Each structure stands twice: as C-alpha cells, then as structure tokens.
Simulated assay, not measured.
Amino acid sequence: MQGRKMNVVLTDGAELPRYAHDGDAGFDLCITEDVRLEPNASAVCGLGFACEIPSGCVGLVFPRSGLGAHYGVTLRNSVGVIDSGYRGEVCAPLVNLSCDTVFLPKGSRVCQMVVVPFVPCDLVKVASLTDTERGTDGFGSTGID
C-alpha cells in the first residue's frame, strides 16, 4: 500500500486498525469490549487507539454498511470528524435502530475511517450570494423521477 504514514498508539489489548482489502478507502475499527445494545439504545464505545491524522487531512468515521443493514446498528452522529489536532482515543457512538437487542463481542468491526485532505476556507461575510439555476430550492426540489 502506498500513502502517508499515520502514527497510532494502541490501548492495552487492542490491535492495529487495518484495511480489509487492497484498494479499500477505509480501514476497519473494532470495539475493545463487549457491547449489548437494547432497541433504540446507544453507547459510546472505545476503538482502542489514538492517532495523529496528518496535517491538512481529516479522519472521517463512517458506519459499516453490513452492521446497519443486517443488525440495525449505525453511528449515532452519522459521520465522525477526527481533526488532525485531536490526540485522544477514537470512539464510536453506536445506536441500535432495530427492534431487537444486539450483542457485539469485543473485536467486532463497527465502523471505518477514511483519511482525506481538506480545503480550509476563509469565511467572508457578504450581503448576498451569486444567483444559480437552483437558487434556494431545497430538499426534494428536483423530484424523484
């Protein structure tokens, strides 16, 4: 694999996060203890590592699609943002959206992180914005067909 290096510190007993397959955009993140989620319950779960996101990049933590599709478990905040200055343990706020109790054993892959560059912007206050074809048309403005 070719890319930037990222320093990672593991908590006791945790394994180094890894990509499941060559070419994957995200590396899998695993919980460090057993988790039992009742229907509609949530829990913030440690993922066993802290890291140094490279400067100019952000770590985006996404749910794993299979966990949501098969068990109804996803991230409570939809997508997590790990800034390059953060040095604490990366955690996952899991939520069970199903009607069934879900048990996830220690080591379960519950989410994934994609590290991407970002463009910082200088925010400028203006009186109005330029016109576009879409304008202020919001949710559903283009229909479903």
Rank of each mutant, 00 (worst) to 15 (best):
G3Y: 06
G3L: 06
N7K: 15
V9A: 14
V9C: 12
G13Y: 03
A14P: 08
A14M: 10
E15P: 05
E15M: 14
R18L: 10
Y19N: 04
A20G: 07
A20Q: 12
H21L: 10
H21Q: 13
G23K: 00
D24P: 05
A25N: 11
A25Q: 11
F27E: 06
F27Y: 12
D28P: 09
D28H: 10
D28I: 10
L29S: 05
C30E: 10
I31N: 08
I31V: 12
T32L: 05
E33G: 10
R36Q: 14
E38P: 09
E38C: 09
P39G: 08
N40F: 15
A41H: 15
A43S: 14
C45R: 02
C45I: 03
L47P: 00
L47C: 00
G48D: 02
F49G: 01
A50R: 12
C51K: 04
C51I: 04
E52C: 11
I53Q: 06
I53C: 08
I53T: 06
P54V: 02
C57Q: 04
V58N: 01
V58R: 02
V58Q: 03
L60D: 07
F62N: 07
F62V: 09
P63V: 05
S65W: 07
S65G: 06
S65I: 06
G66N: 14
G68S: 12
G68H: 10
A69H: 14
A69T: 12
Y71L: 15
Y71F: 14
T74H: 07
L75M: 01
L75K: 00
R76I: 11
V79W: 06
V79N: 07
G80L: 04
G80M: 03
G80F: 02
I82R: 03
D83G: 10
S84F: 13
S84A: 15
G85L: 12
Y86L: 08
G88M: 08
G88S: 07
E89H: 09
A92N: 00
P93F: 06
P93G: 02
L94C: 01
L94E: 00
L94H: 00
V95E: 04
N96C: 05
L97N: 12
S98D: 04
S98Q: 05
C99H: 15
D100F: 14
T101F: 02
V102G: 04
V102A: 03
F103R: 08
F103K: 07
P105H: 01
G107H: 03
S108G: 00
R109C: 04
R109I: 02
C111H: 00
Q112L: 08
M113F: 02
V114M: 10
V114L: 10
V115Y: 03
P117T: 13
P120T: 09
P120K: 06
C121D: 06
C121T: 13
D122T: 14
L123D: 10
V124Q: 15
V126Y: 03
L129N: 12
T130Q: 14
T130H: 12
D131N: 14
G135H: 02
T136W: 07
G143Q: 00
G143E: 00
D145H: 13
D145Y: 12
